[in-house]
Design a binder for these strands. Structure first.
Lengths: 138, 138
DNA sequence: GTTCCTGCAAAAGCTTTGCAGAAGA
DNA sequence: TCTTCTGCAAAGCTTTTGCAGGAAC
């Protein structure tokens, strides 16, 4: 368990390292699946005896403010979160519904930012058919 | 009023051209401000005597299915809609909150789509400082 | 000891659903 | 006429808020 390290990271970002925040942060880092708040809640509820939804939201918002995690606008229904704060793209397959991460060249991404604008964070999001589903639809 | 044309466009896409759908479609085409469902509701309520929220949502979903409008994941709080279905980028200024559209080269956008994936639609979204707010921040 | 956080309950806000009446083909 | 859509009310779901007890420093 690298929870000692996680606690240090939280402290370094001015976030008081409570057990709950460490657990949420750890979950996001070890599950690169863009979970929703509810998904995290369900997972951590099994692991820990008490863990309220409020705490999930509190922890997520705190981590967001500290820029330790990212919110990704993938689903219109619910907010999704991502422990990967590097610039990277997302692809949602309209057939199987799965969401894929893919690396992007930060320079190529920011080259698309219009001149005069100071882009701090860039998100790119494709929908279409993934390599597995594309042949089935041909 | 080009509502005759709008009705024809709806029909051509297999959408029955009711007054309400034409009104929603017309609003989106003439207001390139990525309105939320509630914004559209408030605007059309003044214009038409009765126009329920349910109808706004019904019309928007119908237009979405017909690919006549786009849903843009700009705000985590509410779904925003866009009558501009060309590939284009969005920029949200973290200072003034305004959302800007900018054109992008479709080829450059799709060049970022990973190989093997068939991207049907691409969205790019930056957050940062707009040309007006950037000088004020430093 | 003081400050900040957690967690329960309740509320708020956006969106969907069920169903009767109306509009469109 | 027959299908499809509208609109009201109500519910569903995610997220936020208020406040008392508890953990962290």
């Amino acid at each position: 368990m690298a929870n000692q390290n996680l606690a240090a990271v939280l402290s370094a970002h001015g976030v008081r390292p409570t057990q709950q925040r460490i657990a949420v942060f750890d979950y996001l880092l070890t599950h690169p699946t863009h979970p929703s708040a509810d998904t995290i809640y369900n997972a951590l509820s099994k692991q820990y005896p008490v863990f309220s939804r409020t705490t999930i939201y509190n922890s997520l918002n705190t981590l967001l403010e500290a820029k330790l995690i990212r919110a990704v606008n993938i689903s219109p229904d619910e907010q999704r979160f991502d422990g990967n704060i590097r610039d990277h793209g997302h692809f949602r397959c309209v057939s199987c519904g799965e969401i894929f991460d893919f690396d992007i060249d930060p320079a190529a991404l920011h080259a698309l930012c219009p001149s005069g604008f100071q882009g701090e964070q860039g998100d790119i999001f494709f929908t279409g058919l993934c390599p597995h589903c594309a042949p089935l639809r041909h």
